[in-house]
Amino acid sequence: METLPLSPDCPEGLPLGSHPLFATGDLDEARERVARVYCDHRLEVVGRDPLAARHNRLDGQDLSINVLTYGAKAQIAPGPLERFYLFQFPLRGHASIGTRAGGYEIGGGSGGVLNPDDDVSMIWSEHCVQLMLQIDRAALMQAAHAEFGLPQGAALRFDGARGLAGGEGRSFLGLLEFVISETRRGAEPLARGSALGRQLERTLLVGLLQSQLGPQEESARGAYAPRVMRLAEGFMRENLGAPLMIEDIARAAGTSVRTLQAAFRACHGCGPMTVLRDMRLDRAWEELSNPAPETRVTEVATGLGFFHLGRFSEHYRKRFGCAPVATLRAALRS
């Protein structure tokens, strides 16, 4: 299965042909050139085919996209990667991945992520061609915290092969294919200092996390929700008159917008901004029900962030069964 087509317009027949890093049949040179961008490792040819190593690489700021083949069946033993996570997806052939925790196979539409602290050893099949995403450890951790609500200090770990033929996996591969296709027409989609490049990198990190996080991480995020709710609702109550955005609430709760929205839907059946609106309506009712002689509906509404008075009145009537001015008049008469 070749989920990403091999580029027909580059001489090596590999994607990212416009960004070659090296091509060699010498084992020591291949080991040394790969070590420059990854880490020291042991490399051995274990099959009968001659080594024909080729490596194309597109660098960004926090990640790089790589296409690598050794031609021959090869054993690679890098040990712990330490500084980075490494997503691997065979475009051709397959690979066996071994760690102290166990082993798994990738290929035929499945890929996996190597954790920085895993003691890794791999065997790549003959003519295996791997599409790889090398990601700075801190950058992926930060994305997992910001976008998925991974608690600070919690470990981010991946646990084996995952199919990428459908759903979020297919979308993630589609984004990688887009970036690679842009290089074929001469673009530099991950150019350092480029706003588009930074956005593409962030989207790639989110796509990887969506396609690779397993049930354990999902469960951890669910257990995290009650604390998120307490922090978010407390912040909202203390800032009813402030011009809050959903990002402000997520930041105050120490989580991501996505996790915040999921927690509120699970608890209230609606998003956090709807809950904030109802909190503001409740505060408006309290102020109009206990007015000072100078209290006016307009000042109460605008002080709570309702600048469209017609919409404020509509929401107020739906919630309390009367217009805000009726609440104020009744309170002033009593």
Rank of each mutant, 00 (worst) to 15 (best):
N66W: 12
A139E: 10
P5S: 13
D118R: 06
D62F: 11
P90W: 10
T255S: 14
A146V: 09
R192I: 07
D40Q: 13
I76E: 12
E299D: 12
L281W: 01
R329Q: 06
A252V: 00
E188G: 09
V228C: 05
D28T: 13
C267I: 12
G321A: 00
A143P: 07
V67T: 11
S18R: 06
P80Q: 15
L114M: 14
T3S: 10
S334M: 12
H55A: 08
E168C: 01
L58S: 05
G17N: 07
G103T: 12
L260G: 11
L4S: 07
R137Y: 08
Q75N: 06
A146I: 10
G108L: 03
G71D: 02
T24E: 09
M236F: 00
V45K: 03
D28K: 09
A138F: 12
E299F: 00
R333F: 02
F178Q: 09
I180S: 08
R227G: 15
G214F: 08
G241Q: 01
K318W: 00
V45Q: 02
R265D: 15
L68W: 06
G222E: 14
E201L: 08
L288R: 06
G169V: 01
G109L: 08
G254E: 08
C270Y: 07
G305E: 01
A191K: 11
L86R: 15
V206K: 05
G149I: 05
Q216N: 14
N239T: 02
